[in-house]
């Protein structure tokens, strides 16, 4: 059991990183990574929502959709759950934890359309994970996203001072450097817990 959990975590953070090997969540990854501070905020918000969404969607899938034979509605159900969840989290944080809200608040609405969140709940179903495994996969997948976005933001802060062809201004140079980071993450492939 424990080795399974460790294997899932290691895979989600390093070997099968959501961004560098599965391409899930690229839009916020490229959009919110110009500064390390914003990247950290976005990363934390994603960890939080991915963990919660994995837990709630697992319960809904297992105890509502499967018994009713409505598994074909899973995409629709999951996206509604995620949208509602994000709204609730936003309202809850605003009222009870204002300090956290001021740190994460502006990133929350963006998360609804983050494909890493919908992706992780769909992958949980596809991989037949149980409740604990789903939550672990959600949280560690989020951590992998955070690691990637924070690393990338630090790279981008330096790109600002680099000299590159004019046409590569903006997104293209970011994509090229993200590619190099992906190459570095390939070094983790093959790590295995026996």
């Amino acid at each position: 059991m424990l080795t399974q959990i460790i294997a899932i975590s290691l895979g989600a953070i390093l070997t099968n990183n959501f961004i560098f090997s599965q391409f899930l969540g690229c839009c916020p990854f490229l959009g919110c990574s110009s500064k390390v501070d914003t990247a950290t905020g976005m990363g934390l918000a994603v960890v939080f929502v991915m963990g919660l969404a994995s837990a709630i969607c697992w319960v809904i899938y297992t105890y509502v959709l499967v018994p009713l034979g409505l598994t074909f509605l899973n995409t629709l159900a999951f996206i509604l759950v995620i949208a509602a969840l994000v709204q609730f989290v936003e309202m809850f944080l605003k009222k009870s934890v204002p300090s956290l809200y001021s740190a994460l608040g502006i990133y929350l609405p963006l998360i609804t359309t983050n494909c890493a969140v919908l992706g992780v709940v769909l992958l949980n179903v596809q991989n037949h994970y149980n409740f604990l495994e789903s939550v672990v996969y959600g949280v560690t997948g989020g951590l992998g996203f955070m690691l990637a976005i924070v690393l990338f933001a630090s790279v981008r802060e330096r790109i600002a001072f680099a000299d590159y062809p004019e046409s590569f201004e903006g997104f293209p140079i970011c994509l090229v450097s993200a590619g190099l980071l992906a190459l570095a993450f390939m070094g983790f492939s093959g790590m295995k817990i026996v």
Binding site: S21, C174, V176, G179, A182, L183, M186
Partner: peptide, 12 residues
């Protein structure tokens, strides 16, 4: 994955 990033970067 590396190829995906680089190819799209060059295209843009």
């Amino acid at each position: 994955p590396f190829g995906g990033f680089i190819t799209l970067g060059c295209l843009i």
